[in-house]
Design a protein around this nucleic acid. Sequence first.
DNA 1: ATATCCACCTGGCGGC
DNA 2: TGCCGCCAGGTGGATA
Length: 269
Amino acid sequence: MPELPEVEVSRLGISPHLQGRVLKQVLVRQRQLRWLVPDEVVALQNEPILGVSRRAKYLLMHLKQGDILIHLGMSGNLKMLPSATPPGKHDHVDWVLDNQTLLRLNDTRRFGAVLWQAKGELHPMLSALGPEPLTDAFTAEHLHLCCLKRGSAIKLVLMDNHVVVGVGNIYANEALFKAGILPTRSANSLTLAECAVLTEVVKQTLQFAITQGGTTLKDFSQVDGKPGYFKQELLVYGRGGEECLRCDTELREIRLGQRSTVYCPDCQR
DNA sequence: ATATCCACCTGGCGGC
DNA sequence: TGCCGCCAGGTGGATA
């Protein structure tokens, strides 16, 4: 999926269409996503939508008595459509609004989720998350402290939700390249200065990807159906065996924590 | 606590 | 064409 930029692009796309509208009903055609869609969501009727926010890779649709949590998993996308639009394959959930439109969740692989968080409660999935990367809570000092405690590869630490949220496989590869740091480096070998560079490029990379509508490899789309255009900005992800765009050295591709990892052996140390 | 590996699910691709 | 294995934006959970 959908890493943080894609989720944020989805939020920016749906928010103006949902804010202030009334959710008439929720149509669930496939209840078994990563977890069963809970009764509280299925039963919703005629609820004013107060707003839409994001925490990590979760979207939160705020209602009076609680929040609907939506996670896009690996292959999810959200679209706003006229309410008469017939559902297609993998169109699992519709949120039907009071103006002849609906918000539709399509998720081929069903690793996504729709959850419920009652007013005043914090869903367990949101309770142990690290700081948001695009806020001041994500600092070089915080990253450095996390790194000192860990002997594993920096890429794995960067992708750990307890350290910072929202950085998935694509953006971890890209950020480490931009920071000039090998993904395999032991996290506790990073200096504070290196953590400062890494923190900064993570912020820049995610922020710029949002302006480009995110990255579409296959399943992701913006709310209006257009793909994300950050794919053409990728420097290393998906380019193993090709030339480094900075120095012409052949990019290496390895597995790290079962995830494909691409780096330049010359630019990254 | 940390680290490793598996699981969930569908579909596309390369190889035989 | 068909079948088989492998791979894919995530991440909770079991295990040692």
